[in-house]
Design a protein around this nucleic acid. Structure first.
Length: 344
DNA sequence: CGTTTTTGACCGGCGC
DNA sequence: GCGCCGGTCAAAAACG
């Protein structure tokens, strides 16, 4: 917990611009606090945060925001483990976040109607409200939520793959987390949180099974045979990733992350040679620059109060609920019997 | 046995 | 329409 020291970074110009142009009078500070609370409810940072933001002057904001575009100071202490950037470009009142398909359609329409808001930025389907956080390996291990990895993809312009996690506490929880290692500083990890947890924060991990897989598998199988070439992990042309050990979201994540860092460092020289033309893509937080990054609005915490009553039996049942949530019908989830009551 | 990770396949948005 | 790309699915394997 202690290592989740917080340094919030706000982009003043864009902030003001978007607030004025897109959202009228929005209580930015309020929603910012909510986003921080969502991501790090265990931090008890709120008092400090209030003090920080209340006293934050424009110059301070500019100074704080600079690290997003360059490697942070090497002497950053534990309090710099986390950096948060938030942007707004979508009215939270128009988002339910319950149906991504609907969101996609809405965004498509919104994008065409408000293209002037982001003239050079593309609106992709996943551009929903999100919180981007920079953490160190130590910070990664302190995430109180239970995450289950469901995918990993090489990202164009990044030498490191992006790992996709969903909340493992409940099948119905739409919370997602993306973990991606910084191109410029392998000790920095960029976390992108999307959607909201619809349940209380778990008090323990679901299970320890499988969490140490990579530590024992020192020679993980890699897609080296011809049949693997060109498939998912190596599909990204020109930036083939050697599929480094996945960043685990489990309780042993810190060790695994450190292991991954060492593994990746061995490959860094090779990647640097291959990606010298991507300097503009290798800033600390490419998502900040290439996409609009959003944060959860007031609707973000919708339903949390109701769900607070469900905590005691949240992780117990293994009964499956095929097709309860459309495609969310896989059997690997520890579905709880109550989530249909919660969501349906 | 329950849970997580791995990873090839698939899907849909987007640009050309 | 096609290809690229990011995100997700789901079967198999791994792990406690």
């Amino acid at each position: 917990m202690a290592e989740w020291g917080l340094q919030a970074i706000i982009r003043p110009n864009q902030y003001d611009h978007q607030q004025d142009d897109c959202f009228g009078s929005i209580d930015i500070k309020k929603e910012y606090d909510q986003a921080l609370l969502f991501c790090f409810p265990h931090l008890s940072f709120q008092n400090n945060h209030h003090a920080t933001t209340n006293n934050m002057q424009a110059d301070d904001l500019n100074q704080l925001y600079k690290p997003f575009y360059s490697v942070p100071p090497a002497d950053a202490d534990a309090d710099d483990d986390i950096r948060i950037n938030r942007h707004r470009f979508h009215d939270p009142d128009q988002e339910t976040q319950r149906d991504q398909a609907h969101e996609i359609k809405k965004f498509s329409g919104s994008a065409s109607n408000t293209s002037q808001l982001a003239p050079k930025l593309k609106k992709r389907k996943n551009q929903q409200k999100r919180v981007v956080v920079q953490v160190t390996a130590a910070g990664l291990s302190s995430d109180p939520w239970a995450w289950r990895k469901y995918g990993q993809k090489p990202i164009k312009g990044s030498i490191y793959p992006r790992s996709y996690y969903r909340c493992s506490s409940s099948k119905a929880c739409m919370a997602r987390r993306q973990v991606e290692q910084s191109c410029t500083d392998s000790s920095i990890y960029v976390l992108t949180y999307t959607a909201e947890h619809n349940h209380p924060q778990p008090t323990r991990r679901n299970s320890l099974a499988g969490i140490n897989r990579n530590r024992l598998k020192l020679t993980p199988k890699s897609p080296t045979n011809s049949s693997d070439v060109g498939k998912t992990v190596t599909k990204s042309k020109g930036s083939q990733v050697h599929s480094p050990t996945t960043i685990s979201a489990s309780s042993s994540m810190e060790d695994e992350v450190l292991q991954q860092s060492n593994m990746i460092k061995e490959e860094t020289t090779f990647y640097n040679k291959c990606d010298i033309n991507h300097g503009h893509d290798m800033m600390m937080m490419p998502e900040i620059n290439d996409e609009e990054c959003m944060v959860f609005g007031d609707d973000f915490f919708e339903g949390l109060e109701d769900l607070g009553r469900e905590s005691s039996s949240y992780y117990s049942s293994n009964k499956q609920f095929p097709n309860v949530l459309g495609r969310e019908s896989s059997s690997y989830y520890s579905s709880n019997k109550q989530f249909p009551n919660v969501f349906c």
